[in-house]
């Protein structure tokens, strides 16, 4: 211990720390100019009432935040985003993990699968919106269902399941969540696969020599090794799902009453429909703080899991 404390006064030691710091200087520089500066501007704006154009901005203090606390639609939109996120976290990530595990082993057509699973993320939202509005279309023409899903349900003897998928509040959001999960699982897939590939193969061999079954290997070797990567994937899933909106716009327009509102569409409404930039910024800041809190909690959980 004393050796270390004496080192603090050592010029070489200080130089060493400074060198270490230099590694992050490029990142910090770019970040300060293009993120921190706008951030403070946005935070400042959230304390004002401003329509985006006026030369003067009226200072209103925390009034925007006060109003936000009582904005029922806003909290509902957060719940909707949380719902989409929960579906994505379970459905999308379970699928991604299963696929990644399958592709981690020596199987045929591995390269083919890897390419194919990455198609949905590459596809433009325009295509995704068009295709899914066709699949979920509830209309009829000449006595036949236009929508692929309804058509298929009717043909396969399940006409009672034919449904108005996107204009029923009970199914609109789940449909959006499923489409979103479908579009996003490719990301989880390649990240998890990259994580699996980085695990030392000798660990598996050693476990096998010890006579562990595949389930036990998964539980005792794979899963613990994967915790950090899973954490990243979970964080990214939350981030991507909480901020989904292009897909919603392309599937249901401005939305089905308030049943498909998410925070980002609410922010867009504040910005372009009600022209309240200050309020939009307050929404953005609040939303961000919530996300940061969620990720802090997640970090705690993952730390605990690592220790176990």
């Amino acid at each position: 211990m004393s050796a270390i404390t004496s080192k603090i006064f050592n010029a070489a030691y200080a130089k060493d720390k400074f060198e270490n710091f230099l590694f992050i200087v490029p990142a910090v520089l770019i970040f300060s100019i293009f993120y921190i500066y706008p951030f403070f501007d946005i935070f400042n704006l959230s304390l004002h009432e401003w329509n985006g154009i006026d030369l003067s901005r009226e200072f209103v203090g925390l009034q925007n935040f006060q109003e936000l606390i009582h904005d029922k639609v806003w909290w509902m939109s957060l719940w909707h985003a949380a719902f989409i996120t929960i579906i994505a976290l379970t459905l999308q990530n379970a699928l991604a993990f299963a696929l990644a595990l399958a592709c981690d082993r020596e199987i045929r057509m591995k390269r083919f699968y890897m390419v194919v699973f990455f198609i949905p993320p590459v596809l433009s939202e325009v295509v995704v919106g068009l295709i899914w509005q066709w699949i979920l279309n509830a209309g009829m023409q000449n006595g036949e269902h236009i929508g692929l899903l309804n058509y298929w349900l009717a043909k396969s003897g399940l006409p009672q399941l034919v449904h108005n998928w996107l204009s029923d509040p009970a199914t609109a959001l789940p449909c959006i969540a499923i489409v979103h999960s479908w579009k996003g699982f490719g990301w989880g897939f390649i990240m998890l696969l990259a994580g699996l590939r980085i695990i030392d193969r000798e660990l598996y061999e050693a476990a096998k020599v010890d006579g562990a079954g595949s389930l036990s290997i998964f539980k005792n070797v794979t899963l613990p090794m994967m915790v950090p990567v899973i954490f990243v994937v979970v964080v990214l899933t939350i981030l991507g799902s909480m901020q989904v909106f292009v897909l919603i716009l392309s599937m249901v327009g401005h939305g089905l009453v308030y049943h498909t509102e998410v925070p980002v569409t609410r922010i867009l409404v504040s910005m372009s429909e009600t022209n309240r930039f200050g309020y939009a910024c307050a929404q953005g800041v609040t939303f961000g703080v919530i996300l940061v809190m969620v990720s802090v909690v997640l970090k705690q959980i993952s730390n605990r899991m690592k220790q176990e």
Binding site: F31, Y35, Y37, P38, F39, D41, I42, L45, G52, L239, Q243, V264, I267, L268, S270, M271, F277, A280, C281, Q283, G284, V285, F287, G288, V289, L291, V292, S295
Partner: peptide, 12 residues
């Protein structure tokens, strides 16, 4: 920073 969206940051 990754978490906090900046609506209207296009202006500043």
């Amino acid at each position: 920073a990754m978490m906090i969206p900046l609506p209207g940051s296009f202006v500043p």
